[in-house]
Write a protein that binds this DNA or RNA. Structure first.
Lengths: 198, 198
DNA sequence: ACACGCATGTAAGTTGTTACATGATTCT
DNA sequence: AGAATCATGTAACAACTTACATGCGTGT
């Protein structure tokens, strides 16, 4: 029996925000920035979604805010997780995760690549390769920053978890690069066979 | 300048449906089934979304339907892509893809793993490893079915594109398995250090 | 009798995006 | 003078999920 999500349950965005706040207290604005990078590698949200969600989390007692002096026209609020919020997040981490809908646009595109000429397909693969290479470089430089610190080796320290996710990113991007090179070979040899067969 | 999507533009789901129909004409019901597997590996949608989208695609002239005899209470419609639909899909394949919002719940969970005991973290990693292994097996058996057919080596044949995406899936899952094993080692050695240091 | 597969559609709700709105301070 | 950064919020819209609704044929 799958339950429909109600106003009483915290959604995935809520847990992303709790995770951010469990590492460091922040204003809504700062949360929006932190969502871009480095959390943006695996989750993203705009401020238009973040502010209402923070209000809901506060209504449920998972976060609390204090007003600080800031630059906006309205009072600047700094949020922090409560004990109840930490508990909810911890339970979510070890609980059952309902399978998420998959939406991988880049693969959908490749699945349709047979509709275009092999030359155009090759160009696309090269562009894709570049994107993966750029992302790999970003992951590697972030990983280099944390890898040697002792906190990144303590499994109860947030930096340990950061290191795990970055390591996963590095490995998946390296695999993607090899895949791109393999696709290039496939396309090139098919194009070669085509011209020589005729 | 990012344009807001209007009713005049076809969204990603529309292109997913066009891609399915470009391979084989289908009823809405069949499209919903094909979305589960094998397309569900990289895109998914329920029939509640598919039927209205088919109507929109038809209004734009990208698909056409004929009524066939079927089992439902309403007339059963079989859809096929038109020349205009094929053209639109081909142009989408080589066009610019705006970067998609990332939503990787499994990584978000791992990013918060420092909140739970290393033992529980280890369990989670093992469960994750199992999921990756199961998916790898599914990809490999599907790949085995197509790999040796000549169509899968012709870059203008849909099976070529299927083979590319499956090969990508195999590579990424293999990388994920190695990552899981690496995480297990990290957690185990950290747990060992903890007990022996005391 | 009852569940399941075929088959299409709509309604109600949730989630997420883009744009509008305001206003001080600092940089160019 | 104008743009960017800090800072919060709302409104309109698009996308997606879940549930409701109908009804025949086939298997248990």
């Amino acid at each position: 029996m799958k339950r429909r999500p109600t106003e009483e349950s915290t959604g995935n965005l809520g847990f992303a925000l709790l995770g951010l706040l469990a590492r460091r207290r922040s204003t809504g604005y700062e949360l929006a920035r932190r969502m871009e990078r480095p959390v943006g590698y695996f989750w993203s949200a705009h401020h238009g979604q973040i502010y209402p969600e923070l209000a809901r989390l506060e209504a449920r007692g998972f976060v609390r805010h204090t007003v600080v002096e800031g630059a906006g026209p309205r009072p600047t609020k700094r949020y922090a997780v409560t004990a109840a919020g930490r508990k909810a997040l911890r339970e979510w981490v070890v609980g059952e995760l309902e399978p998420q809908p998959v939406r991988d646009l880049e693969t959908l595109r490749l699945w349709n690549i047979w509709l275009v000429e092999p030359g155009a397909a090759l160009e696309l693969v090269q562009k894709l390769r570049q994107d993966h290479a750029a992302r790999l470089a970003a992951y590697e430089s972030e990983l280099a920053e944390v890898r040697d610190s002792p906190e990144a080796h303590d499994p109860r320290n947030p930096m340990f978890a950061s290191r795990l996710t970055l390591e996963g990113g590095v490995r998946s991007r390296r695999a993607a690069l090899e895949w791109c090179d393999w696709m290039r070979e496939q396309l090139e040899s098919a194009m070669h066979d085509q011209t020589s067969a005729h």
